[in-house]
Computed example of a mutant assay.
Amino acid sequence: MDDLTGFQRDLLYVIAGAEQPSGQEIKSEIEQYYSADINHGRLYPNLDAVVNKDLVEKGQLDRRTNYYELTETGEQAIEDRLEWVSRYTGQ
């Protein structure tokens, strides 16, 4: 996970906290956290990046809507990150 941007890490956390969220659901959650509008030009290339890194699987709900789900590699990356953070924060 060390090669991800902070935004990409945040996308992983949002995806981990939902059951097969669509891009729009992810966008809505991330906008609440960032307190700003996130445009498609920022969201979808970053989602594609985590898919290409095999951290997230992209599937199709219908002809217009994709869903995103963590892969085992993505789950492990989050676990490793949380372990690393807890080492320095004592949590």
Rank of each mutant, 00 (worst) to 15 (best):
1 M>E: 09
3 D>E: 15
4 L>H: 09
4 L>E: 08
5 T>V: 03
5 T>Q: 06
6 G>R: 07
6 G>A: 09
7 F>E: 03
8 Q>I: 03
8 Q>R: 08
10 D>L: 13
10 D>N: 09
11 L>A: 05
11 L>Y: 06
12 L>V: 04
15 I>D: 04
16 A>D: 02
16 A>P: 00
16 A>G: 01
16 A>V: 01
16 A>N: 06
17 G>K: 07
18 A>Q: 12
18 A>K: 11
18 A>H: 07
19 E>C: 06
20 Q>H: 07
20 Q>E: 06
21 P>R: 04
22 S>A: 02
23 G>Q: 03
24 Q>T: 02
25 E>Y: 00
26 I>G: 01
26 I>E: 00
27 K>C: 05
28 S>E: 14
31 E>V: 03
32 Q>S: 08
34 Y>W: 02
34 Y>T: 00
35 S>G: 00
35 S>T: 01
36 A>F: 00
38 I>G: 03
38 I>C: 03
38 I>L: 05
39 N>L: 04
40 H>V: 05
40 H>Q: 04
41 G>S: 05
42 R>H: 04
42 R>D: 01
43 L>F: 05
44 Y>N: 14
44 Y>T: 12
45 P>R: 11
47 L>H: 05
47 L>G: 08
48 D>P: 07
48 D>Q: 13
48 D>S: 10
49 A>G: 03
49 A>D: 06
50 V>A: 11
50 V>L: 12
51 V>Q: 10
51 V>N: 06
53 K>N: 09
53 K>T: 07
54 D>L: 13
54 D>W: 13
54 D>G: 09
55 L>G: 10
55 L>N: 12
58 K>S: 09
59 G>Y: 08
59 G>L: 09
59 G>A: 07
60 Q>S: 07
60 Q>M: 05
60 Q>D: 01
61 L>Q: 01
62 D>Q: 08
64 R>K: 08
64 R>T: 01
64 R>S: 02
65 T>C: 02
66 N>M: 05
66 N>V: 04
66 N>E: 05
67 Y>P: 08
67 Y>D: 10
69 E>A: 11
69 E>G: 05
70 L>E: 07
70 L>I: 14
70 L>A: 10
72 E>P: 06
72 E>I: 13
73 T>V: 14
73 T>S: 14
74 G>W: 11
74 G>H: 13
76 Q>G: 10
76 Q>S: 10
77 A>Q: 15
77 A>P: 13
78 I>F: 12
78 I>Q: 12
78 I>Y: 14
78 I>L: 15
79 E>A: 13
82 L>H: 09
82 L>R: 12
82 L>D: 13
83 E>K: 15
84 W>H: 15
85 V>A: 14
85 V>E: 14
86 S>K: 11
86 S>M: 11
89 T>K: 10
89 T>D: 11
89 T>H: 12
89 T>P: 08
